[in-house]
Nucleic acid binder design. Structure first.
Length: 579
RNA sequence: GCGCCUGUAGCUCAACUGGAUAGAGCAUCGGCCUUCUAAGCCGAGGGUUGCAGGUUCGAGCCCUGCCAGGCGUGCCA
């Protein structure tokens, strides 16, 4: 790679001149208002060169041009050494540049990525979509970087939430099913969750109207008593309850399957809370014996994290039942037994930052060396222009609805254009619009999702990226055969910009992987596509008469298309051949 | 109260991890389709990077103190 070559040259020259091999050099891209391709900032070298910035830069520049054929010219402005590489060097670099990413993985042990991890009492909403897209994309990026990624999730299939749906279905369901009603399974179960809440609220209100306090009413409402009872029955493995639980969960899984398919995500292994929730308890017991944890008089078990600047955290309730943390400890250890992973990422919203901070410390205290390779991919909430999504106020944006709405919008836009867009392409475009909009934002920031703006397919959007790809494919189709290409004698300014942008692809994928941020790749991809469109506008490609130049331009275009397709895939969307 | 995150153009976001005159999209205004797909391109206007100090050759980025918003914070998940 060209930047690596230049780095090597610089290291060599700087060692020769100032014996400064130990000083880390900062090589950057030259801003467009200056002449040059790459810029060395010489300030860090001054303490060794003992000369003025300008003089130091001059000395390095002179030697570079003398000794390295790829360096064409240089200029010095203050402490900045701007290097111009030869067109030949750019050509050579792009000619051998591939769409494959060099590996940065230093182990072949698995790299686990957890994402999605839904509750089984309602369908997926917009917030889940962000989670799924982030988790899936970072998995693809890490795979591209050479890691052996396994995508996993923990399904929260037990607990009070699913019991509410079960109870409501028992009481108000009259035996209807997703099949008998034609309602998608997860929506069907979600409907009964809502019905439970409605009926429960009414009971609470009736009780407070008759003079009971709010807290007491919430406790005493018949539905609450019934649902608590149902949870106990579940834990006692009452056959009828277990059977109903299995049936309703299966309805949900059938529904999720469709949603995941539409979303284009999948998993290598599912963990179920009903299988893992007991695992943690025995680990807590062991930790208690090793005095890593302590027990209070009331029987509850705690860990003291004050040495880490944190608080005390409960691990087992006084009645001996497990809490969220207990389960997560058990699940993590179970995963290690299953995979002997090197690293693991949890894709979970930022409201659980503290939880994971504590989890990783506890695992470390328990002596698990891999704990230091556990990471929380924390992301901000998706909010609407009207504020947070609130299920009680009916402002939750449903995932399935949103996806079909995006597809519909894509179809409508296609109709108003001259080019055709069939069913499949419309779906590709709609889903790309959705995915790009959610992924282009830095994970740790909130995403504001404006339904009105989301139907704009112009500008910095997924469809724009797809459109550019389709344009290039059109050129390739019209040209017919793939022909050999060679150095076109000279490169135009637009070409140099385009080539440098393309050469940056692999670095950007590495950066996205290392920083666990698909947004880095998403923003790069937009820049690349933007550069290509300028190039396309300014430079004749098919209509270029000089054969050698034309074949090079077509090859360059094809290479850009290759990067677009590969990068889009890492972000989780496809690019159509025509649109 | 304490902890973490965020604050950049009217709005939504970038800024290569400390580099040069802070960039894009949307919105507004003005150009470009008899030539490779106008879901495109070119141009204009729009900024005290929340405020105040500090660190150094250099700060949107690091440190301190405020202000605003978000999320948490010993028996919800």
């Amino acid at each position: 790679m060209l930047d690596k070559q230049i780095m090597q040259a610089l290291t060599h020259v700087v060692t020769e001149l100032y014996d400064a091999a130990d000083i880390t050099l900062s090589l950057e891209k030259t801003p467009k208002e200056f002449d040059g391709d790459y810029t060395l900032v010489v300030f860090p070298l001054l303490k060794r060169s003992k000369k003025k910035p300008e003089v130091t830069a001059e000395e390095i520049g002179t030697k570079l041009v003398e000794q390295y054929a790829i360096i064409d010219t240089y200029n010095v402005i203050k402490g900045f050494l701007n290097l111009s590489v030869t067109s030949r060097a750019l050509y050579d670099a792009i000619a051998e540049h591939g769409c494959k990413i060099p590996t940065i993985a230093k182990t072949s042990k698995p790299y686990l990525v957890e994402y999605s991890s839904p509750n089984t009492n309602k369908p997926l909403h917009l917030g889940h979509l962000r989670n799924n897209l982030l988790g899936y994309s970072i998995s693809q990026i890490l795979m591209a970087c050479g890691y052996h990624v396994k995508m996993i999730q923990i399904i929260n299939d037990r607990g009070i939430h699913i019991c509410k749906s079960m109870l409501a279905w028992q009481q108000f369901g009259h035996g209807e099913t997703p099949d008998s009603t034609g309602i998608k399974g997860d929506h069907f179960v979600g409907k009964y969750y809502v019905e439970y809440e409605k009926a429960y609220r009414k009971q609470v209100n009736d009780l407070t109207d008759s003079g009971m306090s709010q807290a007491e009413a919430e406790q005493e409402a018949p539905l609450n008593k019934a649902v608590q009872n149902m949870l106990r029955q579940w834990e006692n493995k009452d056959p009828e309850t277990i059977a109903l639980w299995k049936t309703m969960n299966q309805w949900v899984y059938d529904g999720f399957k469709t949603t995941y398919q539409q979303l284009g995500v999948h998993f290598d292994k599912n963990y179920y809370e009903s299988d893992t929730y007991l695992l943690g308890k025995q680990v807590i017991q062991e930790g208690l014996e090793k005095k890593i944890f302590y027990k209070k008089a009331d029987g509850s078990v705690w860990v003291d994290l004050t040495a880490h600047g944190l608080d005390h955290k409960i691990l087992l309730r006084s009645d001996g039942t497990s809490v969220y943390m207990t389960q997560d400890i058990g699940t993590a250890i179970a995963r290690y037994h299953d995979f002997e992973f090197d690293s693991m990422i949890y894709t979970v919203a930022d409201e659980q930052d503290y939880h994971f901070q504590v989890l990783f410390i506890i695992l470390e205290k328990l002596g698990y060396a891999w704990a230091k390779n556990c990471h929380h991919l924390s992301y901000g909430m998706v909010i609407l222009p009207t504020g947070k999504m609130k299920s009680r106020e009916g402002t939750v944006v449903d995932g399935d609805d949103l996806m079909s709405q995006m597809k519909k919008t894509a179809q409508e836009i296609a109709k108003s254009r001259t080019t055709i867009a069939n069913e499949k392409v419309s779906e590709q475009i709609g889903i790309a619009a959705l995915k790009y909009q959610l992924l282009k934002v830095d994970p740790k920031k909130q995403v504001l999702f404006d339904p009105k703006e989301s139907i704009d397919f112009h500008g910095k959007t997924g469809p724009f990226i797809q459109y550019t790809y389709a344009r290039i494919q059109s050129i390739i189709r019209k040209n017919g055969k793939t022909e050999p290409f060679s150095f076109p004698e000279n490169l135009r300014m637009e070409e140099r910009v385009m080539i440098k942008k393309a050469l940056d692809y692999q670095n950007q994928v590495h950066a996205a992987g290392q920083q666990r941020s698909p947004a880095i790749l998403a923003n790069y991809l937009y820049d690349l596509v933007k550069s290509y469109n300028s190039y396309y506008q300014e430079v004749a490609i098919l209509s270029e008469t000089q054969t050698q130049t034309r074949s090079f331009r077509i090859a360059l275009s094809a290479h850009v298309a290759c990067i677009i397709q590969a990068a889009a895939k890492l972000l989780g969307f496809d690019v159509p051949e025509k649109m």
